[in-house]
């Protein structure tokens, strides 16, 4: 009788440790952000003025957006390397659509970009889910295909801001209550994805798939359909990011977003999403993107040669996964100990 009474309290202790470690992840990024921002602000107080904070958020928002889509995919133990190419293709097609049809309503044009991303994501998803082949190879293949199509369509041309409607370019610079609209869009996508992953059955099932695909299948989770959904969502978000890229930068050629995929994966990993699936949050991934972007800006403000930026973000990524690993090992040990005592 006593044994059954004490066991639950030990189990809650273990669970409390689990949630604490889970929270430590986002907290760790916030602390890292503070460690980067505070010294920079002391050296140059202008760094924390509203305008430069706005720029900071604005610069990080496109990578953060892609990181949200990537998180959904990575949680299911897959990866989408094609996001940079999807963004490029969507950006060029959106810009060209606006340039060719000057009367296009703003939302219809952005919808065109989103639809492009949707089609790319659907192709990725169908190949991975139905072809039953590794997503790393499929999306590496489509990375080349989408980028090649992008170059073939562009034929060396670029779309300039003068050919784009003012409504779109205003979107890139406009603010609501002092916050740039692009940042608000990004935050909205983060919130929707976070609620989906947290509170919806199909969202929870993504974690189950990533933790153990075979067990998920046996538990009756439609693994192929869920996998397809995550790739479609990732493509869709990359399509949206492409349209926003046009709004932000105004000039688009076929090279837009080249090499972005590894930055996005880096942000996701720094944000605490396990590369082999099963754990992580979109908020963490978005914070990871913000942290990597902030470091770049801080180095500029501190007048450290920009050459250091890449080395530092690499070192940061390595320390993030190392700390994660050490925490996980400690957690496993702690769980083993509590289990051991409850048996005794």
């Amino acid at each position: 009788m006593t044994a059954t009474a004490t066991a639950p309290s030990r189990r809650t202790a273990a669970r409390r440790l689990t949630t604490r470690v889970g929270r430590v992840r986002e907290l760790g990024i916030v602390v890292a952000l503070a460690l980067v921002v505070i010294p920079t602000a002391i050296v140059n107080p202008r760094f924390v003025q509203p305008q430069s904070l706005r720029d900071l958020a604005l610069n990080a928002s496109i990578v953060a957006l892609l990181a949200v889509g990537q998180t959904l995919v990575v949680i299911t133990r897959n990866v989408d390397l094609s996001v940079g190419s999807v963004l490029g293709l969507s950006a060029f097609l959106t810009a060209q659509h606006f340039a060719d049809h000057p009367g296009t309503p703003l939302l219809a044009g952005i919808g065109f970009g989103v639809a492009t991303g949707f089609a790319c994501g659907l192709l990725n998803g169908l190949l991975v889910a139905l072809g039953n082949v590794p997503s790393l190879v499929v999306t590496l293949g489509t990375l080349y295909v989408f980028r090649g199509v992008d170059y073939a369509l562009a034929q060396g041309r670029q779309v300039n801001a003068s050919n784009l409607p003012d409504a779109l370019l205003d979107l890139g610079g406009s603010r609501v209550l002092g916050v740039p609209v692009l940042v608000l869009v990004t935050v909205a996508v983060i919130v929707v994805a976070a609620v989906y992953l947290r509170s919806y059955r199909s969202g929870r099932e993504l974690y189950a798939i990533g933790s153990n695909p075979e067990a998920a299948t046996l538990a009756g989770i439609p693994v192929a359909r869920r996998t397809l959904t995550t790739f479609v969502l990732s493509g869709l978000i990359a399509g949206l990011a492409g349209a926003l890229w046009v709004a932000r930068y105004g000039t688009v050629d076929a090279a837009a977003g080249t090499g972005l995929e590894l930055q996005v994966v880096a942000a996701v990993v720094v944000g605490g999403v396990a590369i082999f699936g099963g754990s992580g949050t979109v908020a963490g991934a978005a914070l990871g993107a913000l942290l990597l972007g902030t470091i770049t800006s801080c180095l500029v403000v501190l007048q450290i040669p920009a050459f250091w930026q890449q080395a530092i973000s690499g070192a940061l990524l390595l320390s993030a996964i190392t700390v994660d690993r050490l925490l996980a090992l400690r957690l496993a040990k702690a769980l083993r100990t509590t289990e051991g005592t409850s048996h005794a």
């Binding site: 590894l262 880096a266 080395a311 973000s313 690499g314 070192a315 990524l317």
Partner: peptide
Amino acid sequence: GTLALYRG
């Protein structure tokens, strides 16, 4: 990570 680190 080391892709960024070594290039850096």
